[in-house]
Design a protein around this nucleic acid. Structure first.
Length: 557
RNA sequence: GGGUCCGUGGCGCAGCCUGGAUAGCGCGAAAGCCUUCUAAGCUUUAGGUCCGGGGUUCGAAUCCCCGCGGAUCCGCCA
């Protein structure tokens, strides 16, 4: 579409006092395709020309001709351009068929690093955490799609007080991952009731920092059980990581000490009345009562910020062109403080991508309190529903087990990814497990329908005269395919996968309208050949779009 | 008290960056469409003070200001 807009802008620039770039910024899409494909509002020229906008539109309509535009018409104050449908088809279809799964990619050759998920290793992940992982995975896929050599990190918070608490509670027993949630909740409850429990956790932590091998082993065991259990669930969802970075590494290799010393050299570190080391950040305009960052506890043990800084510096050593991390909205201020601290060390900060929480009707989720919906339970519900649906429609399929995973997880991911990350969502079983309308399965179904046609016809789309594609439904689909490429670049620029979700849904929706309006396999061989090409292009885009969201594209369902 | 994000038909959302013509989509509701490429689909109908109030502008869901409501944060949790 950009091609046509450029041509229009060029032609308009010749006829008016405006520059081509200015015109380009003013062009809009009419609300109804019957009005035209591209519009130029004439209000702005009104003062200068001392004529009414409708008169200007009329005047320009009679003067302008643009290649690939079959008609220029004035409607009130708007100058409307009708793109020749054949020109759209010939511009977009060959491009998609040639670029295939790269269609929409900027083909960067740069490097990127993304850190996401990074759940506390204590229990089975709940839906709120899943939003981080699913969003992060989608952004990682987006980066890879655009050609970024992308490294995916999972930061393992294996030295916290919460892990100490869990480790103490586990003691010498050898629990399974599935026991951890209960153990963690039990420990949290004990801590609330008895402050000695917290004291014990802090003592354990202190021993860990002072190199107690026994404690270190225990920590390691508990953390391993948790991380393995969590990663297995996420892996089942198709979410993978290149590197698990243990936080403890920065403690044991002396990085935290080094960073503390470096920060002290800035002269901004002071010791407070409780013997804690505190970093003064008043130079950074942070919206807090006292812009300070506490670096150590009174007993000298380090706080997470020092480890985070070490990790941030390590990330920078990889020389990435893009460096992003997915964080909850509760970490917004912390991300700023973190960036400020890195700046004091003359280091670059990663770009945070924040998301809001998933709420339940009854309020917030909390692993400690047990008011959670676990991702694994949600996954199971989705699989079971998918399996029931498949058996209802297509009981003869031989891969029902595999298929119900694709469809169930597709529904979960799409329901999370279609909403912009900064929006609070209230979880609702019915909406989240819907397979109809604006859902993952709807898109998967559209993709499967195309495969069905090709199975009947034979896999080769062949060649044909694309000028024949001029039905309204065909044109609408063509335009949707064209705007997919805009969506992928916009999504990259803003780190907003929901833009992809809506775009690929639009393609599926336009395809289904086309499917009902235009029979593909039919007597008119030439028309059939043209439509098969359109179908092949649609299949490519649907598959690409689904993959960007981490959703599989089954060929039958 | 201060900062940030969100507020769009009964419900869930897109549109806001970059202002433009009757505000889109899905669910739910009502009615229709399977002897033709999979009905997880399609078509039609009903349903909206775009949270409220000011301002900027020829024009505001969109930009600015002031409120209201929700989320979240503001020193030893990560």
């Amino acid at each position: 579409m950009d091609k046509f807009k450029d041509a229009i802008a060029k032609a308009l620039a010749k006829q008016t006092s405006l520059k081509q770039d200015q015109v380009l910024g003013m062009l809009t899409i009419p609300p109804d395709p019957n009005l035209g494909d591209v519009a130029f509002p004439c209000f702005a020229l009104s003062k200068e020309l001392k004529k009414s906008p409708p008169d200007i539109a009329k005047d320009l309509a009679s003067k302008i001709t643009v290649e690939g535009i079959q008609e220029v018409k004035s409607t009130g104050p708007y100058l409307n351009f009708f793109i020749d449908p054949a020109a759209i088809a010939n511009a977009i279809i060959p491009r998609i068929l040639k670029e295939k799964d790269h269609y929409g990619s900027i083909m960067s050759k740069k490097k990127a690093l993304i850190e996401h998920t990074s759940i506390n290793p204590n229990a089975s992940p709940h839906l709120g955490r899943a939003r981080n992982a699913i969003l992060g995975d989608a952004v990682a896929r987006l980066l890879k799609f655009h050609g970024y050599n992308t490294e995916v990190h999972y930061y393992v918070n294996d030295v916290g007080k919460q892990i100490a608490l869990l480790t103490n509670e586990v003691g010498d027993s050898t629990p399974e991952f599935s026991d951890m949630l209960e153990i963690y909740q039990r420990a949290s409850k004990k801590m609330e009731e008895d402050e000695k429990v917290e004291q014990a956790a802090l003592e354990t932590l202190n021993k860990l920092e002072n190199g107690d091998e026994e404690i270190r082993k225990k920590f390691h065991n508990v953390v391993q059980i948790c991380v393995k259990g969590q990663a297995a669930i996420l892996f089942e969802m198709g979410i993978k990581y290149d590197h698990f970075q243990p936080e403890s590494e920065f403690l044991f290799d002396g990085s935290t000490d080094k960073i503390l010393k470096k920060l002290e050299k800035t002269g901004k570190v002071f010791t407070d009345e409780d013997n804690r080391k505190v970093l003064d950040q008043s130079d950074y305009n942070l919206a807090m009562k006292e812009p300070v960052l506490v670096l150590t506890r009174g007993d000298g043990t380090s706080l997470y910020i020092l480890r985070d800084l070490a990790y941030g510096i390590l990330k920078n050593k990889r020389k990435n062109d893009l460096n992003v991390m997915i964080l909850g909205e509760d970490h917004k201020l912390y991300a700023k403080q973190f960036a400020a601290a890195l700046d004091m060390l003359n280091e670059q900060a990663p770009t945070p991508i924040h998301y809001s929480f998933v709420l339940l009707d009854e309020g917030k989720m909390s692993t400690r309190k047990g008011t959670v919906i676990l991702l694994e339970d949600f996954m199971q519900e989705a699989r079971e529903k998918a399996e029931a649906e498949i058996k209802k429609r297509n009981p003869d399929l031989d891969n029902i087990h595999e298929l119900s995973r694709s469809i169930g997880y597709g529904a979960i991911k799409f329901s999370i990814l279609k909403v912009s990350a900064e929006k609070n969502v209230t979880f609702n079983w019915e909406n989240a497990l819907s397979f109809e309308g604006e859902t993952g399965p709807y898109i998967q179904y559209s993709h499967a329908r195309i495969h069905s046609i090709f199975r009947k016809h034979g896999e080769e789309a062949g060649t044909g005269n694309l000028d024949l594609l001029k039905h309204d439904a065909e044109i609408a689909l063509l335009k949707s395919l064209a705007s997919f490429a805009d969506a992928t670049t916009h999504a990259l620029k803003t780190y907003h996968p929901h833009i992809i979700a809506h775009s690929v849904f639009d393609v599926a929706s336009k395809f289904n309208e086309f499917y009902h309006a235009c029979p593909v396999l039919q007597d008119d061989e030439k028309l059939q050949a043209a439509r098969l090409q359109l179908l092949e292009a649609t299949r490519i885009v649907l598959k690409t779009g689904l993959e960007l969201l981490g959703i599989q594209a089954p060929e039958r369902m």
